[in-house]
């Protein structure tokens, strides 16, 4: 649990993932994996097996955020989004700017007393928001520069079986990856397993396109999906209590999915089927066309995706670990 909170608190806006990179690399090394880092920042940890079959498991570890675009004369900052940031969740949001030092800030909002009626329902563009650090341009000059990344300054919160935080998408997936690394340490593997934490998914799955790994026979992509909630309850959302989802659609292998479902049923792991007709939703589309191998997707439903308070059911994340460890074990080998 502490590890999950640690990685949630370590910022990794797309393109600025380096802070988290070392955390992952250290864990992979700690668990005895053969590591490799790609120029973009993808981190691979490989466990050699005895059987000629290689499973690659991918989770992106970047998160959405903002970057400093302009510092106004009065010290107010204007920002640009990195990834799908919704301006509707920015009002009065606490932020942390990572410059030469960490500078706390808040998105300025006009109190209702001073608003004109005609502007009361207006949602500004992201560049129209002002970000207030409480400091003047002069005071800021030694602290931050244009291009510095900005994160949502919101602490993770455990609520029973649930945890809320920015970037649950996809640090939940990253946590699964690190748990698998721990499992692989004590597992005499039959198939080879490559764990791969990738960058820049939120800006167009760029990291996963950056291929440096050995060949593999199966790629499994772990990512977040939409949980059913008020105002978002169509056929593309999944009950948060319904367990992990197994992805179906052009990207995904029906044959392997069948195996996953068997493993899930035999181990009493709750799952639901998710249809992704658009092939561009996750890193899976990069893998499915990048070589001659099968691709699968396992997702976990989260509330409030791409807001500062995404929510996941912790048991669902643990069930993905269970599913994948049992899947790997099915190939044989011992513990």
């Amino acid at each position: 649990m502490n590890l999950l909170i640690d990685i949630l608190k370590t910022p990794s806006v797309s393109g600025y993932e380096s802070g988290l990179k070392n955390v992952i690399l250290d864990k992979f090394k700690e668990y005895g994996l053969i590591t490799a880092v790609s120029p973009l920042g993808n981190i691979s940890g490989k466990r050699m097996g005895t059987f000629p079959y290689t499973i690659l498991i991918d989770a992106h570890y970047d998160q959405i955020g903002l970057i400093v675009k302009k510092i106004e004369e009065n010290g107010m900052i204007r920002a640009q989004n990195v990834g799908g940031v919704d301006p509707r969740v920015l009002f009065n949001l606490p932020l942390k700017i990572f410059g030469n030092e960490i500078v706390k800030a808040v998105v300025a909002t006009k109190p209702p007393h001073l608003q004109k009626t005609k502007n009361k329902n207006k949602i500004p563009k992201i560049s129209e928001f002002l970000i207030d650090t409480g400091l003047s341009k002069k005071e800021l000059s030694s602290k931050i520069r244009i291009g510095d990344p900005i994160f949502f300054d919101v602490e993770p919160e455990i609520m029973g079986n649930y945890i809320s935080s920015p970037a649950i998408d996809n640090k939940g997936g990253l946590w699964v990856l690190l748990k698998l690394a721990q499992f692989l340490k004590s597992y005499k593997a039959v198939p080879s397993v490559i764990l791969r934490a990738t960058v820049q998914e939120e800006v167009g799955c760029r990291g996963a396109a950056n291929r440096v790994d050995d060949l593999y026979d199966l790629a499994v992509v772990i990512d977040a999906t939409f949980a059913t909630q008020h105002l978002a309850d169509d056929d593309h959302t999944f009950p948060i209590v319904g367990g992990l989802t197994i992805m179906y659609g052009p990207n995904y292998s029906k044959k392997i999915n069948e195996k996953f479902e068997n493993v899930a049923s035999n181990n009493h792991i709750k799952f639901q089927r998710e249809v992704e007709e658009s092939v561009y939703g996750t890193n899976a589309y990069r893998y499915s066309v990048s070589g001659n191998h099968a691709t699968c997707g396992i997702s976990y439903p989260i509330f409030n995706m791409h807001t500062p308070n995404e929510v996941v059911a912790i048991p669902t994340l643990l069930s993905i670990v269970e599913l994948l460890t049992n899947f790997i074990k099915k190939f044989g080998g011992n513990k």
Binding site: D86, N121, I123, M159, L231, H306
Partner: peptide, 18 residues
């Protein structure tokens, strides 16, 4: 502790105000 929920941008078009 509680969180005021907000549907994800992908499913709730940006022009809509909750």
């Amino acid at each position: 502790k509680g969180i005021i929920m907000f549907p994800q941008i992908h499913l709730f078009p940006p022009k809509d105000i909750v």
